[in-house]
């Protein structure tokens, strides 16, 4: 295990996990490896079983997505003993980056729609919003709740063999570490609300953009939309009240 990570490229360092780009054998295509390292502040046995449950949970959620037609990275290796999950390497860019708001802390004035690089993927901003809405709807239709929907947890990638009449890029949802199964409209509405807040806090003038996401979500969800829509209004209201109090 250690030898696999030695010299591997670190993609991201988080509080719970370190993310690497590695090859499992010499000359193999790279994969993304998420290593949930041991936490010193937790009891070792408890930590080990929590880690195992997280790795297993994320793998199962991804499998469920794959079977439900939700685009996510495929699973390439699981090593629960070491807290490792290996995933298909997605050659693309996070929606956060595509939308041009770049890294956290960057000046908001600089970002705006002017720097959108979505064109490089052969689609327009509007189509990007449609793709986002459709993939979330597809996930919710199969009762999968993401649990942490942000524009960093969606990647845009070019379609390898685009079909005539369908867009040349697609959305791949990532980071299912907090996901769970639920049929409740409440959970689906909260999922959408979390994304709405993420849009508002990172992308200026996000309202019309997010409205397009919801339009596409509604179209793809069919009858299920009415309930989610009403609940989303409730959730927004609760959110606003909370922010007035706090």
């Amino acid at each position: 295990m250690d030898r696999l990570l030695e010299g591997a490229q670190v993609i991201q360092q988080g509080a719970e996990a370190r993310v690497y780009k590695v090859s499992l054998h010499a000359n193999a295509a790279p994969i993304l490896l998420k290593h949930r390292f041991a936490k010193q502040y937790r009891h070792p046995t408890l930590d080990a079983s929590l880690t195992k449950a997280r790795v297993a949970g994320e793998a199962r959620a991804l499998m469920k997505c794959l079977k439900s037609g939700v685009r996510v990275p495929g699973i390439r290796m699981v090593d629960v003993e070491n807290g490792c999950l290996g995933l298909e390497w997605v050659e693309g860019m996070s929606v956060r980056k595509v939308l041009g708001s770049g890294e956290e802390g960057e000046e908001l004035e600089e970002v705006g729609v002017g720097r959108v690089s979505v064109g490089e993927f052969g689609i327009g901003l509007e189509m990007l919003m449609v793709l986002i809405g459709e993939s979330i709807a597809q996930m919710h239709l199969f009762d999968i709740i993401h649990g942490d929907l942000t524009t960093s947890n969606m990647m845009l990638r070019r379609v390898s063999k685009p079909q005539p009449g369908s867009p040349p890029a697609e959305i791949v949802l990532i980071d299912f570490g907090l996901s769970f199964m639920s049929t409740l409209v409440e959970d689906k509405a909260v999922d959408l609300y979390v994304l709405e807040r993420a849009f508002a806090s990172t992308h200026p003038d996000s309202e019309p953009m997010f409205a397009k996401v919801l339009d596409a979500y509604a179209k793809r969800s069919g009858k299920a939309w009415e309930g989610v829509k009403r609940r989303l209004e409730d959730v927004r209201l609760r959110g606003r009240k909370r922010s007035m109090v706090g």
Partner: peptide, 25 residues
Amino acid sequence: RSNREKERELVNELVVSAVAMKCVM
């Protein structure tokens, strides 16, 4: 033809993922 190609790609992805995660299935 294009659906058959897509189906094979998808079946391949599903079986690869199933094999990779068998130990936690």
